[in-house]
């Protein structure tokens, strides 16, 4: 090495490297370092790339499973909400039925019978009221539990209907008859809401943009129901 340095032409530059000039020790050192650093860098880059790729695959897998879990939760929430809202309608119609029976008993001549029927139906009514309250509470619990998977608009809409229905109470009029105020409107709201929930597709986990119709639902009046009960008797 020392001999080679000594034989090197003095006119050759430090980084000259050709037929006449050998590579200088300094250039040798620099080029060697660059080559070593480059090869180490390349190996490290490859290792890091492989690690990052593996990590990315794992993250993608976690995200996918999370997404699938969210979709399952959404499917379950919508199905559960549908059945709960159907139960709300059912409990409301049971209450309405009890009220109709209670009012029909007002027209009985036998006071003992009247008292017995009214006390029985009143008990049923209280039971149905409690049931309705519990179902509505369930609906709200579902909304709270799944507000991260359901769209805010959907949550607000269902919340609005719950607010409305929960605020309606059975009232007794001055003549002693019972009345379920705003029953028709409650039922209409629930029907619209159920129609909307029916548009949910489990294939794409979304509500479809179904065109809303102007058709309204007509319900029999309370008087007609009382007459119907009387006719049945």
């Amino acid at each position: 090495m020392a001999a080679a340095v000594e034989e090197r032409d003095s006119t050759c530059g430090t980084f000259d490297w050709n037929e006449r000039c050998d590579l200088s020790p300094t250039a040798h050192l620099v080029v060697g370092d660059v080559l070593i650093a480059g090869s180490i860098g390349g190996v490290l880059a490859f290792i890091f790339y492989r690690l990052e790729h593996k990590n990315q695959l794992k993250i993608d897998k976690i995200l996918e499973s999370q997404q699938a879990l969210n979709e399952r939760r959404k499917d379950y929430s919508v199905e559960h909400l549908k059945s709960m809202l159907n139960l709300v309608i059912f409990a409301m119609s049971m209450m309405r039925g009890s009220i109709t029976h209670y009012n029909a008993a007002n027209m009985l001549k036998d006071k003992e019978d009247q008292k017995w029927i009214q006390s029985t139906t009143l008990l049923q009514l209280k039971g149905e009221e409690g049931k309705l309250g519990r179902i509505l509470q369930n609906v709200r619990t579902i909304l709270v539990a799944s507000n991260d998977v359901l769209e805010p608009d959907v949550v607000n809409r269902i919340w609005g209907v719950c607010n409305y229905v929960v605020g309606i109470e059975v009232q007794q009029k001055e003549d002693g008859s019972m009345v379920y105020p705003k029953y028709n409107v409650c039922r209409l709201k629930l029907t619209y809401l159920l129609q909307f929930l029916q548009t949910y597709s489990q294939a794409n986990h979304a509500f479809s943009e179904k065109e809303e119709t102007y058709e309204s639902v007509e319900f029999p009046s309370e008087l007609a129901e009382v007459r119907e009960v009387q006719q049945q008797k």
Binding site: R157, V161, Y164, L188, K189, L190, Y192, L193, F196, E212
Partner: peptide
């Protein structure tokens, strides 16, 4: 007032 409504709102 200007308000957003959903179908069935009262």
């Amino acid at each position: 007032a200007v308000l957003p409504f959903n179908r069935g709102d009262t």
